[in-house]
Design a protein around this nucleic acid. Structure first.
Lengths: 336, 336
DNA sequence: GCCGGTGTTTTTAACGTTCAAAGCCTCGGT
DNA sequence: ACCGAGGCTTTGAACGTTAAAAACACCGGC
């Protein structure tokens, strides 16, 4: 394994000159640069990242805690991780995975990773209502960025990137309206979820703008499951037989809706238009395909990395970015 | 950020003594150890991993290439990653994620990560038939371990951990047989897939052992999709109206089977028993639940890490571990 | 011929840790 | 009292890199 010293000897320059050839090539005379580069090439030199990090005290690694909540399905996690990695690599960085207990119990793990210089900062996701990690990291002055808002106002939430759920619901409503739907229901979660309130609000606003009814058309599911989605759909249909559209808070709930419609002999996309959220692999795999709101993962990841690694303004200055989802139309909302 | 030097000054010992307190405590007199530990605690000292790695040339990081094959769904990737992280952490290591082009085009990326000392070795997954990575890494003497066999014999495949697909299929067949099924079909993939041939072989062997017919009961699907699974199921049912069991190579194909059964008015679990593979989130989410063969992720991960980080015998000595899947029984194979 | 300036290269000194070897006790045996 | 052995601790050097400062070479102006 070649070192700077060996390259320097080969090119007959000092060690520092080789270092400069890599980090500040403009400082070298063109012919020297050329000669050094030839030696680098010839000896197949690669800088030792540990030595560099020791000197500069920056490891170019970003920590991400891989979530493990068995009750909540992470259907788009692989998409997210791939996008995050790719974005990090575009800035010469990488993602370091770790596990930690949820909530405040996990804080020692974050602290340790940072204190031992395994990472420069963190990307958080699965942000909870009142997520304690934000305040804690901020206090420790550990750089971080959150995918997802901290919904209830803690003391100074810290920087985040999120997708505009209200806008997404509104897009779904307008799409169904254009397809002729006039009585559009909404499958929601318990009130405690900020994400749910956001998406529900978008549905309500859009319906009002279009002159559509909302009263009695929103049902809250107890959890994110197919069975709950089906139950809630049954409840909606029992209360209003003329229901012809359903906007669901998640793909899973939407699948429940599809199932209940099928059970009643109604055809999704023909009798009732259905949309989900997040465009998980499920959406493309059921029949008819599920119309869903895709999270722009590449943009999200790029924003996360860009804010976290911004050399000036530390991300401490509460940066906030709200991105728009994209409606992916499949058979569940439009026949054919 | 406290350093060894500061701790040493505080405890009134030399730097090396503090280092020993951490790495070889038996070398210290009990009272010295106690005093040093108090100083460490008091100053909240954490060793700087970069400095340590520079000195010892081991980074305690394991590279894992996050796959990105849009055509193939990675429904259990989050389970795998969590298990892998946890297993790595149990040995004081972490997982570093990266992206790379598939096949031999990605090799420079692996090479670079290793040469620059960002990782000590690699965990490979999504191993392909004739996967070029094994030979290449072996040649470069870069430590690696593969999740999944290299099916066609390349020159010296290298160490791997895998799940016994044949045993899994056989378990599924025996389970269906116990439930009274006597004509059990198999949904497969093209012959080129080693994984498919493995699982298909297990079905055939088990059927023969139990005296069940196999001729004409295996269908090959062109790809891993719901539609293909449904088509193949239709083909099976058209050819043999008395078919009462289906072992599918994947959960996705099994979902296709469920769909086709429903279309024909047949009830999964009652009229025809269906099983899938991998126990993806899908299996728990459809109705009836899909009986499926769970991959023992924690064991897999533990084996991967243990072989890769084995201090004696380098994993170069072709180590091979074949683990058993576990049958998770749900409504698709047994009524109730 | 000397001066200051500009552009290029080298020297020196770290970054925080561990390894190898040397040093210093203390103690039992002669 | 002296020696050698063991247990514990310190010393010195190194891992490979970069920042800062110093040195050098060249040039145009006076």
């Amino acid at each position: 394994m070649a070192t700077l010293k060996q390259v320097a000897a080969h090119a007959e320059v000092s060690v520092q000159t080789v270092s400069n050839a890599l980090n500040a090539p403009h400082r070298l005379r063109p012919d020297t640069l050329e000669r050094v580069n030839r030696s680098i090439e010839l000896l197949n030199y690669r800088p030792n990242r540990n030595a560099r990090s020791l000197r500069t005290s920056a490891v170019e690694l970003i920590g991400y805690c891989v979530p493990n909540w068995p009750n909540q399905t992470h259907l788009v996690m692989d998409q997210f991780l791939h996008a995050l990695c790719a974005a990090a690599e575009r800035t010469g960085r990488h993602i370091l995975l770790f596990t930690a207990p949820p909530g405040v119990d996990g804080m020692p793990v974050y602290d340790d990773l940072h204190a031992r210089r395994l990472v420069d900062g963190f990307v958080l996701s699965q942000t909870e209502t009142h997520d304690p990690r934000h305040g804690w990291l901020k206090e420790q002055k550990i750089p971080f960025i959150s995918f997802g808002r901290v919904w209830k106002e803690t003391t100074q939430p810290g920087p985040w990137v999120d997708v505009d759920g209200a806008a997404g619901s509104a897009m779904a409503v307008r799409h169904l309206h254009e397809a002729g739907r006039r009585r559009i229901g909404f499958l929601s979660w318990p009130k405690s979820s900020g994400l749910a309130e956001d998406r529900l609000g978008g549905w309500r606003t859009a319906c009002k703008e279009l002159g559509l009814p909302t009263s009695g058309l929103a049902v809250r599911c107890r959890e994110d499951g197919i069975a709950e989605g089906a139950r809630a759909t049954a409840e909606l249909l029992d209360a209003d037989p003329f229901l012809d559209g359903i906007v669901a808070l998640s793909d899973i709930l939407a699948l429940g809706a599809l199932r209940e419609l099928g059970r009643r002999g109604l055809t999704p996309g023909v009798d009732v238009g259905v949309t989900g959220f997040d465009d998980s692999p499920l959406a493309d795999v059921v029949s008819p395909g599920l119309t869903s709101l895709r999270q722009p993962m590449d943009d999200i990841a790029a924003e996360l990395i860009s804010i976290l690694t911004d050399p000036d303004g530390p991300p401490d200055a509460s940066t906030e970015r709200l991105l728009h989802p994209e409606l992916v139309i499949r058979g569940s909302s439009a026949p054919g």
